[in-house]
């Protein structure tokens, strides 16, 4: 990912790659690596121009851009309901919420760009199907209750993941996450409020809410990623303080928080094995279908094709607009120059 040419073009001017980053691979071993790890261990933030191991940079680019892609693709399943929202207030809230997802995507792309890769390149990877995004957004939103379930469960799970990222060792990522977390809590609350209205509403509404919980419960648990034993990148990411808690720890915390919330709604979590373990103060839950997770991740989920097609269409149909804006700016500059001459 490191670009030795075109660096100025692509990175934030404030934060462009420093001299240290351009040293030979051979020099990167030993002392630099140690000094870097010492700084991370001391909870010092790493900033874009600081020396960093190439693998750290690659890991961050992968993780932050996947996160950004997830926000952008994540606009689609809920955006689906903007035109049909059942009240004007709900419509207003939903537009603001989906808009925030776009904003979060933009903050995260901005953070990724400090690592020497352009947003257009990252978006290109997404559209070509080379980059991953959260598998959860490949599930459909057939009813209004899905909008509620996404806010409550999916954003709830996201917050669980994201709060520790506010302390991530990489400065621009941590700062973006602080902003995102501040904005995100409204997302979860509006989702839960939708579920509350539905579960206290008509029989049809309550049924709609239960069906949505049934659809989103397991995929939400999968959002935390493979179990610790299976997780490829976890140990190194923990050492680098990109990650603070293991997938299983966060998943457990999510279940512990969410089960009482479902009880309050009078809804049933679709897991016959779910039970309270009083001794451990935890809810024990059934086995996750990791095969389903793998399949969705590989592109075989219910909506993978639609989601990517929607993004590609927006990109392709927007090209003439983006080109026109560039052309206009060039013409303006030329006119200014010719006046000055």
């Amino acid at each position: 990912m490191r670009r030795d040419s075109g660096v100025d073009l692509y990175t934030q001017g404030l934060d462009s790659l420093g001299k240290d980053c351009l040293r030979d691979e051979a020099e990167e071993s030993g002392t630099f690596e140690q000094r870097f790890q010492t700084r991370v261990d001391a909870e010092e933030k790493i900033e874009p121009k600081d020396w960093m191991p190439e693998a750290y940079r690659r890991t961050l680019i992968r993780q932050i851009s996947q996160h950004a892609h997830s926000e952008i693709v994540g606009m689609l399943p809920e955006g689906n309901w903007i035109t049909r929202a059942p009240s004007l207030l709900r419509k207003t809230i939903l537009i603001a919420k989906v808009q925030d997802e776009g904003g979060h995507g933009a903050y995260l792309y901005s953070a990724t760009e400090t690592l020497g890769v352009s947003r257009d390149e990252l978006i290109g990877q997404l559209l070509e199907g080379k980059a991953k995004y959260s598998s959860i957004f490949n599930y459909p939103t057939p009813t209004w209750a899905d909008v509620g379930a996404i806010g409550w469960l999916v954003d709830g799970a996201a917050i669980m993941n994201q709060v520790p990222l506010c302390r991530c060792s990489y400065g621009p990522y941590a700062r973006a996450m602080v902003r995102i977390c501040k904005e995100e809590s409204f997302h979860q609350r509006q989702g839960y409020e939708i579920m509350m209205r539905l579960s206290r509403g008509t029989t049809a509404q309550k049924d709609m809410a239960q069906q949505a919980l049934n659809r989103w419960w397991w995929p939400s648990l999968m959002m935390f990623g493979p179990s610790d034993a299976e997780s490829k990148h976890s140990a190194q990411s923990m050492r680098w303080k990109i990650k603070r808690f293991s997938n299983d720890e966060l998943r457990q915390k999510f279940v512990d928080y969410t089960v009482p919330q479902a009880e309050f709604l009078g809804l049933t979590i679709p897991d016959p094995d779910l039970r309270r373990d009083e001794a451990a103060q935890h809810y024990r839950f059934g086995t996750i279908d990791w095969n389903e997770f793998e399949q969705v991740l590989k592109g075989h989920g219910p909506c993978n094709r639609e989601r990517l097609e929607a993004r590609r269409r927006a990109h392709d149909e927007g090209r003439w607009v983006r080109d026109a804006a560039i052309a206009h700016a060039a013409k303006q500059a030329a006119r200014k120059n010719s006046r000055a001459a």
Partner: peptide, 13 residues
């Protein structure tokens, strides 16, 4: 708003 390419920055080195 400042064009990123117009910003001059010190080097951590």
């Amino acid at each position: 708003a400042v064009r990123s390419s117009d910003i001059v920055a010190s080097d951590p080195a």
